[in-house]
Write a protein that binds this DNA or RNA. Structure first.
Lengths: 157, 157
DNA sequence: TGATAAGGTAAGGTTACCTGACGATAATAG
DNA sequence: CTATTATCGTCAGGTAACCTTACCTTATCA
């Protein structure tokens, strides 16, 4: 026999997911850079994913929603300020806080980024169909549930 | 209006994938640690995913298949040697090379890990059904295709 | 047999986070 | 209305998981 006992004979889900995510993330940065922001980094996505386009928000709120520390988000904000994508203004309602908002340029940039995400999703839908796409999102959303179930089934050992 | 122009109104696929992957990876390490290998790290998965159970392989071959540098894999191998999971023996056919093989303990550990992966997948299948699971794997496998298509459609601008 | 390539190691850099400690401001309690 | 406590953002330093560059050793090939 030519393989480890119990080694899956198919490429495991975790490997498939890992590959897909790498591709998607690299693509996002590549597209952003191609638009002239050569200093864009993967980490910046955490802000684009969380900052509302309509109102200013506090860096620490963004951090909380993104699931990273306020220090990590603080650095992201600083770099995107340098790139002219967001700006920080004092919060009139709280002297300690600063509100992060898109600049005009940043708003346009972010819009194109979101449109690119939609384009990629649409492209995938054209390949596999809307149903398959929806199913995928649904299944991935239930991974946590599956993990919890396994943990429950085999508690100690 | 309360959102950025073109901002997706659903949670984008990339975010869903990211969340699922984090959960799966953390779970793998947690399970390994719970089995007594407290020094296991996420990076070690790169070896388990690539090392054949049946024959010894060169560190640089593993690196190539895992998609990381031989230096990165070299460090992983060194740490797993310290944990008694793999061992390195000189390659009788090439004096420069060393072959990485599982120890008995390591083989058993890896088997359990793979079984855990299968358990998680099975658990997910119980929740969403075999068809949905298969569809998910299929769709994720076609992400690269979708990215290529978008790149082709909007070449320069 | 000398040039070139391949296997692995060593040293140090990069990215994307983290924890801990801090000064400034705000809220709240006495 | 001060004293305590909490919150906002920043600074300093640490960690994980890689990377690049450089190197020594051993093969292979002309």
């Amino acid at each position: 026999m030519s393989r480890l006992e119990d080694k899956p004979d198919h490429k495991p889900l975790i490997a498939v997911i890992d590959h897909a995510l790498r591709s998607l993330r690299e693509d996002m940065v590549a597209v952003g850079r191609a638009r002239g922001f050569s200093q864009l980094r993967l980490a910046h996505d955490a802000l684009f994913a969380t900052l509302s386009g309509s109102k200013g928000e506090r860096s620490s709120d963004l951090a909380a929603r993104a699931g990273i520390t306020k220090q990590a988000m603080g650095e992201v904000v600083r770099e995107l300020v340098d790139l002219g994508i967001v700006e920080m203004t004092p919060d009139p309602e709280d002297g300690r806080a600063k509100l992060v908002t898109y600049t005009k340029k940043g708003r346009e940039f972010a819009s194109r980024g979101f449109r690119h995400i939609l384009d990629v999703e649409q492209s995938l839908i054209e390949i596999v169909g809307q149903d398959a796409f929806d199913t995928t999102v649904e299944v991935l959303g239930r991974v946590d549930e599956a993990l919890a179930k396994v943990a429950t089934h085999s508690p100690g050992e």
